[in-house]
Simulated assay, not measured.
Amino acid sequence: MINTNLNHTGDAHRKLFAAVVLAALDDAILDEQKRGNGAESIARWAASRDGQTVLSCAGITPSERCIEGLKGFVKRNVRTSTALTRAQSVKTA
């Protein structure tokens, strides 16, 4: 019982930090649309100590490959809610 409860708590924490990553991506996408610097701002955040901590807590390895992926996502200019909705509809199809 304790292991299950601890695992559930860990999953909840990972989901919370994943939501922070999604919010950071949405902010960077808005910056990209308004000022054209969103990809660079997400890269700076992901490379920072705080960004690396948040990514790690979300279960994401904060590597150069990860940072390049975040930058590419921001450059595609698709909000995270839209991307997640599309991914979900592909899974169910």
Rank of each mutant, 00 (worst) to 15 (best):
I29R: 00
I42P: 06
L6M: 10
L16G: 07
T9Q: 12
N7H: 11
A12K: 10
T9H: 12
L25G: 03
N77P: 02
R76Y: 04
A39E: 07
P62C: 00
S89D: 13
T92W: 04
S81R: 12
K71D: 07
G69W: 08
I42G: 06
S41G: 04
A28V: 04
A19F: 04
N77A: 13
A83T: 05
M1Y: 01
S41P: 03
D31P: 00
M1F: 02
A23G: 05
L16Q: 06
G59V: 02
R49I: 01
G59R: 09
S48F: 02
K34W: 05
A28L: 06
M1L: 04
S81C: 07
G51V: 07
A12I: 08
S41M: 09
G36C: 10
K34R: 15
D11I: 10
T85E: 15
T4W: 09
Q52V: 02
L25Q: 03
S56G: 09
C57E: 14
L84V: 09
R86E: 11
R65L: 09
G36R: 04
D31E: 10
D27F: 08
R65Y: 03
A87T: 04
R49K: 10
L25D: 05
R14Q: 14
T61G: 01
T53M: 13
A83S: 14
A58I: 10
T61K: 08
N37W: 00
A12Q: 11
Q88T: 12
H8N: 13
E40I: 05
A58H: 07
L6Y: 07
A19S: 15
A28S: 09
D26Q: 02
A23S: 08
A83F: 15
E32Q: 15
